[in-house]
Design a protein around this nucleic acid. Structure first.
Lengths: 344, 344
DNA sequence: AGTTAGCACTCTCTCGGGACGAGTGCTAAG
DNA sequence: CTTAGCACTCGTCCCGAGAGAGTGCTAACT
């Protein structure tokens, strides 16, 4: 749709703006990027690009800034693929792959790394359990009416919950219940646990309330009700961005990010895209994030997508680097989880 | 040391400044608080107070501001005791006492509540395990060389750690080890677990590496090495304070707070004080927090102090309210933990 | 017909100066 | 010792002018 010269102008302008955060003028553009034409010509092209909605001016007689549509075009058509340097690769390896601990810790570590590497905020949807393999359940009575249920799954996942049972329960009943469930469920994929798999156990152990509570936990409960966990790291990096020099903006954005369920909404949109997704400005479902962009990529366990990892920054984001970095970290994380699952 | 009228001037001035965040002039002081003397007299008193270091002027011909010494005097000698209103009391009850879940969750909830109630940031040292009662240990092999150790203690405490053992270990060995340890340790106070309590077990189970790893975990490891956990809530409240309208200040403070081990240092100083402690400005061991004050109070399990809960705000803090609120929440938390421990 | 130089114009940003206001310290009288 | 009066100091707000960056238009050039 855009001819070659317009593409080059948009390309140069976008990258200049990403770098400097200042509206870009024709003169500057002509000087820094050898486009082979004079500022006047570039001005004409810029006027056209503005008419078509790719650029806009903050005010007459300022340079131009890419619009969301301009960024979108840049991301889809213009930007070069960025690859992490060897140093960056090895940093990822050292800090994510090498950790080799619980799955959630690895994911969390990846989030921290990503924030540091990109200097944006990183947002990560914690891994869903679906694809994990059930290893063991333990039931430890705390007092008459409350029992700690501990679930261990592979790779390296431990979760516990205190469940309340309506009727007093004994240690022996807990042990019995746990033993039966363990026999039945060992090695089962977590997402495959259904009530019918547990048939008979309710009757075998004389404590239906305990059974119900635990069965509920196993089939639905553990997915961590509280707005499916989201890790958020490097939020302070956002304050370095000139667009958030204004304290009020910064405050309202940070406040928004505190509400994890909102982030979760964003990430679920991102996940729907599959692979790597870029959400630019107004494309964001959350109104308060219309001045931000989110670059995210899914990570997997086996062949299943179990979570999403990404970065959040101003729309004036270094998309090339962000996409490259997010993709690389997501891939490495996937690899690391596989290694963890295979046991070593 | 200060005569009555100076005390009244310092009192009024401090509270006015706390409320308005503006340097306080003699005229204002005379008008708002009926001190029974003219502005001129107050000016003389203020000049004296400044000479003695209780006040200072940001610049000639501005009103006065309390110095750290002034705040200290206010806190120690002048301020009235503040008591939470019935509504606030019941909010504390609803959100902390009523939660009745795991110990750590309760403490975390208390932190959130405190931040909301005071509109400062809350900092809380997570409960130490020392005073908890050992309930159960589980060892679940993840693969040949890694074992998940899950410890359950009362009241409502669950912790897990992945331990690496140098030599392949079987499910049976894990079960055996866990069973023996459980028999030996059930009901033992966590802080009393010592190597000698475990004597003999190492030999009984044919896997010394596993024993060493687990024994290490039980005696020292679980205290959560990573800079003894600190909860931090309501950091954004700080941005509402006019002293942090400047983005650079806000940034550097928030960055400082991210480093949990620094906070831990502050809290450990606070804990040394016992009871309720107020750290004002330059009294803070951390240089970057010299423009902040910290009000904190210990919470207990049984008769033992197991953690510290407090708030952090600008030196121009409503000390009266902060002290009252922190104390009340700490007391209620202590009570709630006791109730949890007694089972019900 | 596209490209470019020239130029008038617009708009923001910065800086200096003057008015204003708040508050002080001093002096002298009560 | 207290207080009224007053001159003085400083920071802040509000202009207005000038500089700088960049544009759009027009007319000439290739």
């Amino acid at each position: 749709m855009l001819d070659e010269r317009k593409r080059r102008v948009l390309h140069a302008l976008t990258e200049d703006y990403i770098q400097t955060a200042e509206p870009v003028g024709s003169r500057n553009l002509a000087r820094k990027y050898n486009l082979g034409v004079s500022p006047a010509t570039i001005r004409n092209e810029m006027a056209d690009l503005e008419d078509e909605g790719y650029l806009h001016q903050p005010h007459t007689s300022a340079g131009r800034i890419p619009s969301d549509k301009g960024y979108r075009y840049y991301v889809d058509e213009l930007m070069a693929r960025w690859e992490p340097s060897p140093a960056e690769r090895s940093a990822v390896y050292r800090e994510v792959l090498a950790v080799r601990r619980a799955m959630e810790e690895m994911v969390h570590e990846a989030a921290r790394l990503l924030a540091r590497a990109t200097q944006y905020a990183s947002v990560v949807a914690a891994p869903s359990l679906e694809a994990s393999i059930f290893r063991r359940l333990d039931l430890v009575p705390l007092d008459d009416l409350r029992v700690v249920a501990v679930v261990v799954a592979d790779p390296g996942f431990v979760q516990h919950r205190i469940v309340e049972v309506g009727r007093p329960v004994s240690q022996a009943q807990c042990d019995q219940m746990a033993a039966r469930l363990n026999r039945r469920l060992f090695g089962v994929r977590y997402g495959d646990i259904r009530r019918d798999l547990l048939a008979g156990i309710k009757e075998e152990v004389g404590h239906p309330e305990l059974y119900d509570a635990v069965a509920d936990l196993l089939t639905t409960g553990l997915s961590d009700r509280k707005s499916d966990k989201v890790y958020l790291e490097g939020t302070l990096n956002i304050l370095n961005q000139p667009e958030f020099r204004d304290i009020e903006r910064a405050r309202s954005l940070l406040a928004l990010l505190e509400a994890r369920d909102i982030l979760n909404e964003v990430l679920s949109v991102a996940a729907r895209g599959g692979g790597t997704t870029v959400i630019i400005g107004h494309e964001n479902p959350v109104a308060g994030l219309r001045e931000c962009s989110v670059v995210s990529s899914a990570y997997r366990l086996g062949d299943e997508v179990i979570g999403v990892i990404g970065v959040l920054g101003p729309t004036r984001m270094d998309y090339s680097r962000a996409v490259g970095m997010v993709e690389y970290v997501a891939d490495q994380l996937t690899e690391a989880l596989d290694a963890l699952m295979r046991g070593h």
